[in-house]
């Protein structure tokens, strides 16, 4: 997960826990960190790609789309499922996400709705055939 907002990151953890998904969450707090992660994965054959990338758009240093682009350029990690998670409702963002083959989850304004994220993640992971 690339997310600079700690409260949001914790909420994601809540959603995963609520859905009882066996996931390990790694957090990159800015775009550069996220790109570094991918780069490491590319460089080092032992360094793994994440099974799923949760991407906030509004990241410092490098924004979400840039990270996504870097991801899609990565040999190793380009096919991993990506869910863009953002407070933006702009149609252009949605469109761009779809173009780059990423899902779109708008950060909702209620706790209940946020928990639905869990179901979405579950779906993404099962579609990809990973557990």
């Amino acid at each position: 997960m690339a997310e600079d907002n700690l409260p949001d990151a914790l909420l994601v953890r809540e959603a995963v826990r609520a859905e009882k998904l066996p996931l390990e969450i790694h957090v990159a707090s800015d775009g550069e960190q996220a790109i570094a992660f991918i780069a490491r994965a590319d460089a080092d054959p032992d360094a793994p790609c994440p099974h799923l990338l949760l991407l906030d758009l509004n990241l410092p240093k490098k924004n979400g789309f840039e990270v996504l682009k870097r991801l899609r350029a990565s040999e190793k990690c380009k096919d991993i499922p990506v869910l863009i998670m953002t407070s933006s409702d702009a149609p252009e963002d949605r469109q761009r996400a779809a173009e780059l083959g990423a899902g779109y989850f708008r950060k909702p304004g209620s706790y209940e709705a946020f928990l639905k994220l869990g179901g979405v993640l579950k779906e993404l992971l099962t579609v990809r055939g990973t557990d």
Partner: peptide, 11 residues
Amino acid sequence: EPIRNVTIYSE
């Protein structure tokens, strides 16, 4: 964002 945080966490 901050507003959302407030809302959700108060929930």
